[in-house]
Computed example of a mutant assay.
Amino acid sequence: MMQLTQFSNTSALNDAFASRLVSILQQAIAERGEAYLVVSGGKTPQALFNTLSQVDLAWDKVTVLLADDRWLDAHQTDSNERLVKATLLQNNAKAARFISLYANVASAFDGVAQVLPRITPLPTFDAVILGMGEDGHTASLFPCSEQIKHGLADNAPAVLAVQPQTAPYQRMSLSLPRLLNSRNIFLHLVGSNKLAVLNKAMAEQDVLAMPIRAFLHHPVAQVTVMYTEN
């Protein structure tokens, strides 16, 4: 199920989104003593991350991890971990705990054995922030990959290695069931082109063609789309 929330501009979206996330994290800390936030990489969330990093919050009780990452160490420019550490895990948010999806082995497929035990024991997430590619992928659940059926399966492990055919680098991605195991799921979109992709995803049901549909059309999970045209 999908709920579309539109904003007049990126600034308004980021302010409202940050406020909502802070409320979710504060409630989690008050009720359970800890909070779990899953974020995505790319250009879209960077301003949001900067805003969140300055919020007065018990960040030492917050665990942050990525929905997916390229199989690169955190010093590489294209690493999502590098991006998150440079933008979100700054200022007040430096106190947060971060769980990496990377291990120092050559292949993501070899790295699953090291990464899986970090993720499997985690409880229900408090908030997951997804992005979406123009091919309808989300996290690193790529429609072009041989691993897509595995990643979307109800019994998929918490993480899986992915080799996209239309994007560089091997990836480590949280699976559909692990991402769905969250109290709040958001899809963060900026630009009219992304709205067109969203409309296409909503118009049909084939999740293998556009994996984001597995979230948008899920019979139980509620996905809140945070969108602005500019």
Rank of each mutant, 00 (worst) to 15 (best):
V64G: 08
N9G: 14
N14M: 08
T120D: 11
P143S: 12
K43V: 15
Q170H: 02
A67W: 15
S175H: 01
V190W: 02
M226C: 13
A139F: 14
I24H: 06
A221N: 05
F215Y: 04
N14T: 12
L195K: 13
S40A: 14
S19K: 11
T138K: 06
G151I: 10
Q165G: 00
V115L: 07
R178C: 09
V162M: 05
V115G: 12
R70E: 07
A153F: 07
K61E: 13
D154C: 01
E204R: 09
V62W: 06
V162R: 01
T10R: 13
V112M: 04
T51F: 14
A47H: 15
V39R: 13
L48Q: 03
K85T: 05
I148Q: 00
F49A: 06
T166H: 13
F215V: 07
L89G: 02
T138W: 03
L57W: 00
S11D: 14
A214S: 14
T51M: 14
K43R: 14
S173T: 12
R70H: 08
N230S: 13
S100F: 02
K94R: 09
L88Q: 02
S79K: 09
A158G: 14
L101D: 05
D56T: 11
S107F: 00
H188S: 07
H75D: 15
R118P: 01
W59Y: 10
V64E: 06
F98S: 03
G136Q: 01
E146M: 05
S145V: 05
L37I: 10
S173G: 03
W59N: 04
F142L: 03
T51I: 15
D154I: 12
A167P: 13
I29F: 02
Y102I: 00
L4Q: 09
T124K: 00
T228S: 10
F109S: 06
I119S: 04
Q90E: 01
T44A: 12
Q170L: 02
A196N: 06
N14Y: 04
S19E: 10
Q76V: 15
A156C: 08
Q26R: 10
E229W: 00
F17R: 06
I129H: 13
H217S: 03
M210Y: 06
P123T: 08
L180A: 10
A28K: 11
V223P: 01
F49G: 10
L152V: 08
F98G: 08
K94C: 02
V197S: 06
C144L: 02
L65S: 08
T77M: 02
N80T: 04
M132Y: 15
V207F: 02
S8G: 08
F109A: 13
V105E: 07
Q27T: 15
A156L: 08
L89Q: 03
N92L: 06
G133H: 14
L195T: 03
V197E: 03
I29Q: 07
E81G: 11
Q54I: 07
